[in-house]
Nucleic acid binder design. Structure first.
Length: 281
DNA sequence: ACTCAGGGTCGAC
DNA sequence: GTCGACCCTGAG
């Protein structure tokens, strides 16, 4: 039984786990506790080595490869520093946040998380997502937030009115729609990974409450795409103010342009810009 | 108490 | 393509 795993790589836990990609990691004195799959884990940095502890009630063996994949550790993005060294704005952001990693999370939870993100803020998204998992999910650990995220069936059992009571507001019917479309197979999550980008967007945006920006986030954080460039209010600001993009373009056009420019660097560049603009670096 | 804005999207025009 | 509506909550 492997209850502790160490990985000799670097990650900024704050910006990666709690910077707006994922909404259910809880910081307790620098250690981040959260759920991956059906296990409760605590992740910390000790002497520049990543330490992952299993805190589940029913512990299963930790799989190092899966954990590395979740944490975006398989690949190294140091090359970005060199590639963009002549761009003052980007090189500053890259160097300031060089241990920021893009996670590969459970697609369903990401779908609900980013539907919830619409005109909201990170702290409120976290509140909603945690309340929902507590109300509808199976408890798998001893702490308040140790729950598996509820599946579509369980969310339908909870119902729109209860989602509104939890604070989801006008997003509640969107979440019900996503759940319905999963149940009746209008949205087949396990198939989306095989589609090309255009069809992925088309499938996801069939769901009420998922537009281009939310779909791009879902594809990035839930389906491991890295050639996606979600454009929100912050990223729009960065692209226009600091990278010379045309302010007359709408967010979808900006996303297309940025995606063409940055190709498979897109997801990282986008996240650097998001993080940078939000913390006004 | 009141205004404002926060990882947008939808439907009507 | 543009515009108002949409829920709620914490900050000022």
């Amino acid at each position: 039984m492997t209850n502790i795993i160490t990985i000799n790589e670097r990650i900024n836990l704050q910006s990666s786990l709690d910077g707006g990609q994922a909404f259910r990691w809880h910081n307790n004195k620098g250690k981040y506790r959260g759920v991956i799959g059906n296990q409760v884990l605590t992740i910390s940095n000790e002497n520049n080595i990543i330490k992952i502890e299993n805190n589940s009630m029913n512990k299963e063996n930790l799989n190092k490869l899966n954990l590395k994949s979740y944490l975006g550790l398989g690949t190294n993005q140091d090359y970005l520093k060199i590639k963009y060294k002549d761009n003052k704005y980007l090189s500053k952001l890259i160097n300031l946040n060089d241990d920021l990693k893009i996670l590969s999370q459970d697609p369903w939870e990401v779908i609900i998380g980013f539907i919830t993100s619409s005109v909201s803020n990170i702290s409120k998204i976290k509140k909603c997502m945690n309340s929902l998992s507590i109300l509808g999910g199976d408890r798998i650990g001893s702490s308040d937030y140790d729950y598996i995220f509820p599946d579509a069936r369980k969310i339908l059992d909870i119902g729109e009115e209860n989602l509104r009571k939890l604070g989801f507001g006008f997003r509640a019917p969107y979440i019900i729609d996503a759940s319905n479309k999963v149940i009746n197979k209008e949205l087949e999550i396990e198939k989306i990974i095989k589609y090309d980008y255009k069809n992925q967007l088309q499938s996801l945006t069939k769901v009420n409450g998922i537009g281009r920006k939310v779909a791009d986030c879902i594809l990035t954080y839930g389906f491991s795409r890295r050639d996606t460039f979600p454009v929100d209010r912050w990223v729009r600001k960065g692209l226009i103010s600091n990278l010379g993009f045309n302010k007359n373009l709408n967010n979808e056009k900006l996303a297309e342009k940025a995606r063409l420019k940055f190709k498979t660097d897109s997801a990282y560049i986008q996240q650097y810009i998001f993080y940078g603009e939000k913390t006004s670096l």
